[in-house]
Design a protein around this nucleic acid. Structure first.
Length: 267
DNA sequence: ATGGTTGAGGTTCAA
């Protein structure tokens, strides 16, 4: 069987439902993880997603900001929500599902952006981001015996040189500072998690999933960053058949500033 | 010199 999994920072799911529907009909993922839903759980568009076949839903929302959701055609079990640092932000939801002979826990994260100033002493939002990543580092892919893991989401960090349009020009820009990228690179280097996007498309290929709204012409400038990620436990590496970054979606009507990332796994 | 845009919700903050 093939499992198709997608992750997309949607920047308001209610406003974006027309392109969510367009995406789901065109690409038919089994599971879709959303970040920045920006609505409370009772405001979440559960019915339209039900009608599209995504009848299994694990949502963690709050008023106005943040918010994550997993919507799925395959049953979701053991739904969990974490609030790293106990700050009252809806930035994580996880659930388990079955794929072939595997049971998989899927974590969906929305890591704090961290503000503009990359200095934890004067910028509490950056301090929160670094603390958040520290807490993520203690989340191990083999935490539950007999259960594989997938971790997706908007991690708001572009860890590698070719995850940004200019490594040199972004070294002091939040999302690509060494103190942030070292954390993610350490997790990958120690082999606890696989970076499936880079397994499929190694450096030095440029990979971007986000282009700022502030560019006059995002496509012409092409000043992107890879802020969205798909990781898995090591045992799932051989099951990956493809990764697709849906760059076209950045040019859709009323787009999010992030595009969907689609992972296809064969079991 | 510290721009530029978008969204939610309420006249500003977060990204």
């Amino acid at each position: 069987m093939q499992l198709t999994l997608a992750t997309w920072n949607i920047n308001s799911v209610r406003l974006r439902m027309p392109i969510v529907e367009k995406f789901l009909l065109a690409h038919q993922p089994d599971v879709l993880c959303l970040q920045e839903t920006k609505c409370t759980n009772d405001q979440f568009p559960a019915e339209p997603l039900n009608a599209l076949g995504y009848v299994h839903q694990a949502i963690n929302g709050q008023k106005g900001y943040h918010g994550v959701a997993i919507v799925s055609k395959v049953p979701l079990e053991s739904i969990d929500r974490r609030d790293h640092g106990n700050v009252g932000h809806a930035r994580h939801v996880s659930a388990t599902f079955v794929a072939g002979a595997k049971t998989i826990r899927l974590h969906n994260f929305y890591v704090p952006a961290g503000g503009d100033e990359p200095n934890r002493e004067i910028n509490p939002k950056f301090a929160h981001k670094l603390d958040y990543v520290e807490e993520m580092k203690s989340l191990h892919s083999g935490a539950e015996p007999g259960i594989s893991s997938i971790l997706v989401g908007d991690l708001n960090i572009a860890p590698l040189e070719h995850d940004v349009w200019s490594h040199k020009q972004l070294l002091k820009i939040v999302s690509h500072t060494p103190v942030e990228t070292d954390g993610l690179k350490e997790v990958i280097a120690r082999g606890d998690w696989l970076d499936l996007m880079r397994q499929h498309a190694p450096e030095p290929e440029k990979l971007y999933t986000w282009w700022s709204y502030r560019a006059a012409d995002w496509a012409a400038a092409d000043k992107g960053r890879r802020l969205d990620h798909v990781w898995s436990s090591p045992d799932l590496g051989p099951h990956l058949s493809s990764i697709e970054i849906l760059k076209d979606a950045r040019g859709w009507e009323k787009p999010s500033d992030h595009v969907p990332v689609i992972a296809r796994l064969q079991f």
